[in-house]
Simulated assay, not measured.
Amino acid sequence: MIGLAPWMQMGFDHVSSMNQTGRLPHALMIDGPGGWGEVELAAEIAMMLIERSGDPRTIAHPDFRWIEAENSVVKVDQIRNLIDFIQQTAHLGSLKVVVLEDAQKMNLNAANALLKILEEPPIGSHLILVTEAKDLMLPTVISRCQRVSIRKATREVVVRWLSEQDVAAEESEPLLIEYGGAPFHVLEAVRAERKSLWSALKTARDGKTSVSDVVDGLRNENIVEVLTRWARFLHRLAVEDRVGPDGLDFFDDLIDARRMARSNTGLNRSLQLERLMFKWRGLVILDRQKN
């Protein structure tokens, strides 16, 4: 595990203090904007409670479970299994701990089933819900949890922390734009050896490489993520007043293409990306700063 980033420390210390003074609630909700260490904070808290170290997803412990979505949905059977588990007597110590990742992905039946255990939690049981989209959750579920919210840190703090993870500033800066400033998404991209999209976009504009070759270099990327990252770069250019009305029109084109990609599983991604790359190549971008 990576450990606690500076912006996660306050939340961890708060939960640790409640645990030490016997005030730890039965249900916590770790929420944040996504990519800011929500899952990692939940993992650190869980390991503190069961007094273990390591990756909680792989750890073998009779009083701990980690639950995540199956095919993008947390199903009612998973919650029923959670309830069966947490109602059993603890084998080691007195605590039973469950982490529910992506809690916003519970379907309605799952959320209603979870409500029952939240309303009448067994003694010594602790649920840790993790979400980056709490607005998608039932208000009744949220109201029965004590929230531990992660707040965004400044760019300077994030860049410094990434450098401590061996991600140099010249590498992290464009990736932070692409991933909406989310440091854990940047770190994941670096460790997966995903290159910055900006280099591909600059290659497409310089004319030295064919558009089809540039698109081929993105063949292993998720098209929705590519279009999202591309739109973030264009937004940054617009904020810096480096594109004109045609740039704003192109931004709308990217958003429309992303909407189509999300809803159309039969979309020809290569043709779509090539079309956008040709428009990108013809876009006027003012050189107000060094790229």
Rank of each mutant, 00 (worst) to 15 (best):
R229Y: 06
I45H: 04
L24K: 03
E173R: 05
S16K: 12
I79C: 00
M18T: 14
L28N: 02
R219K: 15
T209N: 01
W230A: 06
L82Y: 05
I30S: 05
V224N: 07
E68K: 09
D246A: 12
S17I: 11
W36K: 05
G217Q: 13
R65H: 04
R229T: 07
P6I: 13
I67S: 04
E101R: 11
V98A: 13
I86F: 07
S125C: 02
V39M: 05
G124M: 06
I223A: 11
E171W: 02
N81L: 12
M48R: 01
D241T: 04
E40R: 01
L176S: 03
D13G: 13
L201Q: 12
E193P: 05
R242I: 05
T154V: 01
R151P: 01
M29V: 06
F85I: 09
R160Q: 14
I285D: 12
G207Q: 11
R205Y: 11
I285K: 07
R80W: 15
T154G: 01
K290L: 14
R57K: 15
Q78E: 08
G266L: 13
G181I: 00
T228E: 15
V130C: 02
R52Q: 10
M47F: 03
K96F: 06
P139N: 10
D213F: 04
R269Y: 04
K75P: 07
Q146M: 08
I67W: 03
S263P: 07
R205L: 13
F85P: 02
S263R: 15
V15E: 11
E44W: 01
N220C: 06
R194T: 01
Q146K: 10
E178T: 09
V74D: 10
F251K: 00
M10H: 14
A200H: 15
A182W: 02
G3W: 09
P122W: 07
D206A: 09
S143G: 12
G180R: 03
V141I: 15
R242N: 03
D84S: 14
I2W: 09
E156D: 11
A5F: 05
A43W: 06
I2R: 13
N19M: 09
A46I: 01
S212L: 12
E68N: 08
R262L: 12
E132P: 01
E188G: 15
A182I: 03
E132G: 06
I255D: 00
G247N: 04
G244K: 10
L127V: 03
D135I: 05
K96A: 05
H91Q: 13
L175T: 06
I45R: 04
A238R: 03
I45Q: 03
R262F: 06
D241F: 02
I142S: 08
N222I: 12
S210N: 04
V226T: 10
V73M: 08
M260D: 15
A43L: 00
D102P: 00
H185P: 04
S17M: 13
V167R: 06
L286H: 11
E38Q: 07
K75L: 10
R23W: 03
G180F: 04
W280S: 11
K208C: 03
L162E: 05
H185C: 14
A261Y: 08
F278V: 15
D55R: 03
K279D: 13
L254N: 01
C145M: 14
L234Y: 00
W36Q: 09
E193D: 13
L234V: 00
V159P: 08
E119N: 04
S263C: 08
P25D: 10
D55H: 02
R219T: 11
E120G: 02
W280K: 13
F12Y: 11
A192V: 09
D252E: 02
L136I: 05
